[in-house]
Design a protein around this nucleic acid. Structure first.
Lengths: 220, 220
DNA sequence: AATAATTTTTAGATTAATCTAAAAATATAT
DNA sequence: ATATATTTTTAGATTAATCTAAAAATTATT
């Protein structure tokens, strides 16, 4: 089924909200995610329900039906593959690619995505460390822990970031923190959750709890 | 100025029609080019005139203003760069890229196009031999003749095709005719304009006038 | 130049996606 | 459990882009 850009964006928003909250998505949550009004969301939910893409009962929130999940994961696949292209081939920085990929993900061509995937050597993760679903919608799973959950002396590699905003990523750039950076917890302050960490066994920096929560580590 | 996809498509259509006919574009010609109704065209022309992108007087046809030409050439630039990407990097055949490039050309990001251009090594021509305008909108000019205008004994290299339809390009594939193929006129029949031509000094084939008109040759 | 044919525009609708404001339903708090 | 707050839906408009059918203007033909 061919969907409009708007419809695709709603499906993706519902997918992301349900994934994070692990329950049905509310009208307001969707409105917030898409920066639109609750009334617009209600309108669109009716149309998506009509097309059998979502389960929707008035006042009860929505979940995706199988067809909706398929569409959403394909969209995420496209988005993340394009991000890899932008960073690996066009040498964009990881903080510049989101908006462009938001546009590219709506290009419709199966063949294009198959070839792009091959051209990029079938990447499993995007430039922010998020898993790229394969053509069947399967995500690669990887054990990872927020840095904020690690204890003094523990060590690991940065494999992902939770916050994708330009500001956060630029801050990481300024600290010279990137995917692959080795991080060791030197000290953590129970009072405010801030931490001292060693980067690549070279320099020690201090980060706040908020930052630590947004860094995903694969322990060694 | 940020334009909608529809507006961009109208500007491109007007550009192409005026370029070919070397005069103002009529409502019907635009409608035909875009497979839409004349009424829709009139509506859109009013809006484009309002935005100062075209010169439009009722019943008189339209021409592009400077701002409209700029938009149209940038669109053509994007389309042709994406076609190069699809053929050179993703290994699509030249008969498969048009529709995908029609979508990609509407992606909005100056930075993306600058980087894509560099990634592709600043190509001057697309996979069909059409010139790619540079960032300033300048086209590279090249002397070329339709094969149909050449005479017995004349020789040259195929540098472009006028017809971009899948059917025509697939027919050329079947003849093993591609950009770069050397073509010598063995014989031409005045009665119907058909020709016998030698390809790469290997084999001789017969083509109709229609085909010959759509093959652009740079004479040696 | 008058008439016929063609082209273009207008009038009036339609659809998708959005909005604000008001009403209705649900959830929360005393 | 009743009142209050919050969330969600409905009602009614708006905008961009499209359509068909009819009217108006232009162009072509005898």
């Amino acid at each position: 089924m061919k969907l409009s850009t708007a419809e695709e964006n709603y499906l993706k928003a519902i997918f992301k909200i349900s994934e994070k909250a692990k329950k049905s998505a509310s009208t307001n949550a969707i409105a917030k995610q898409l920066s639109t009004s609750a009334a617009s969301v209600t309108d669109m939910l009716k149309r998506l329900a009509e097309k059998e893409l979502i389960n929707y009962e008035k006042y009860k929130g929505v979940t995706l039906k199988v067809a909706g999940i398929k569409q959403a994961t394909q969209l995420i696949r496209k988005h993340r593959l394009w991000e890899v292209f932008l960073v690996k081939k066009l040498r964009f920085s990881w903080d510049q690619v989101h908006e462009i990929a938001e546009q590219l993900e709506h290009i419709e061509s199966e063949e294009l995505i198959m070839r792009l995937d091959a051209f990029l050597d079938y990447p499993k993760f995007d430039p922010h460390g998020d898993p790229i679903p394969n053509a069947d919608g399967k995500f690669t799973i990887r054990s990872q822990t927020p840095l904020s959950d690690m204890h003094k002396g523990q060590e690991g590699m940065l494999v992902g970031v939770k916050d994708h905003t330009t500001e956060f990523l630029k801050y990481l750039n300024s600290l010279n923190v990137k995917l692959g950076t080795m991080i060791t917890v030197i000290d953590s302050v129970p009072y405010d959750g801030s931490m001292s960490v060693n980067l690549d066994n070279k320099n020690v920096i201090m980060i706040t709890a908020t930052v630590a929560q947004n860094l995903l580590i694969r322990k060694v």
